[in-house]
């Protein structure tokens, strides 16, 4: 079969249409490999069919290639950089930036609150500690006072019980008949312990003054004034007394005391019994 006859048979048009069997296709292909005239004819038929079929398309398909590539994951670098990747990238950055800022701000506020809470706690603890310290100090003072009081009481008790100590009751006189006092005289120690529990509180500007008396002749010797009468809870005062006293008297005198007793203001008086 000549080339012309082969072409005129119409087999090449069917070859392009895909209407031949596999064996026929293979036979045409083998001929085309060795016969450039046949191949040229095939290319022309194909070109005409491509145009004819394209003419049946009411669409411009060129722009759809992008979508094909996208579906295949073949997005070319140029487009992906400009359109789908770049924008979300900046957006993502911006969003994450904002998110980070919010988280940071939230964290800072939280930390500030925590710090304030801690400060308050510390202040509270400090205050409590101070209160505790004050309480402790007060307690210590009380203990000290109590201890001192106890010591005082024990001393008084020992004084009262001491056989060497002479007890002299001082009875109330005309100016204050209800008044009384007691002198405990430790002759060895040259001390008197004066208990003035039974005396009224002296008026302002006045103090009690203690006198040691000899009766024959009657001569008073001042043992001093009781300046802190109001503040002494036990109302027992220790006073030095090296005199050979025969009696003790207490008068109310102006502040600072007097050189001789004001007899009109003699509150208590008592003689040493032996």
């Amino acid at each position: 079969m000549t080339n012309k006859e082969y072409i005129e048979s119409g087999i090449l048009e069917l070859y392009i249409a895909g209407s031949l069997s596999d064996a026929e296709n293979k036979a045409v292909y083998d001929k085309l490999l060795t016969n450039p005239d046949l191949l040229d004819e095939v290319l022309k038929i194909e070109a005409a069919i491509v145009q004819l079929t394209a003419a049946a398309s009411p669409s411009d398909t060129q722009h759809l290639f992008k979508a094909v590539k996208t579906k295949l994951g073949l997005d070319d670098k140029h487009e992906t950089k400009v359109v789908p990747l770049h924008e979300p990238k900046t957006n993502w950055l911006a969003y994450s930036g904002w998110a980070a800022s919010i988280v940071l701000a939230g964290g800072l506020i939280y930390l500030l609150n925590q710090q304030n809470a801690l400060k308050t706690n510390i202040q509270t603890v400090k205050t409590e500690l101070q209160e505790k310290t004050i309480d402790n100090t007060l307690l210590e003072e009380r203990i000290t006072t109590a201890t001192a009081n106890l010591t005082e009481a024990q001393k008084l008790l020992s004084v009262i019980r001491d056989k060497n100590i002479v007890s002299i009751p001082l009875s109330g006189q005309a100016v204050s008949p209800e008044a009384y006092a007691t002198v405990y005289w430790d002759k060895n120690a040259n001390n008197i312990y004066l208990d003035v529990q039974g005396l009224p509180e002296p008026p302002a500007g006045k103090v009690y003054q203690v006198w040691s008396l000899t009766l024959n002749p009657l001569a008073p010797t001042s043992l001093g004034t009781i300046d802190d009468f109001a503040n002494n809870e036990t109302k027992i005062f220790t006073i030095e007394n090296a005199n050979a006293s025969e009696a003790f008297g207490i008068t109310l005198e102006p502040e600072g005391g007097s050189t001789s007793p004001t007899m009109e203001q003699l509150y208590t008086l008592g003689a040493v019994s032996s």
């Binding site: 079929t53 394209a54 049946a56 398309s57 009411p58 411009d60 398909t61 060129q62 759809l64 290639f65």
Partner: peptide
Amino acid sequence: KMYSKSMHGVIY
């Protein structure tokens, strides 16, 4: 580019 419009024509 060569064949998409043809294919679209045939399919359409």
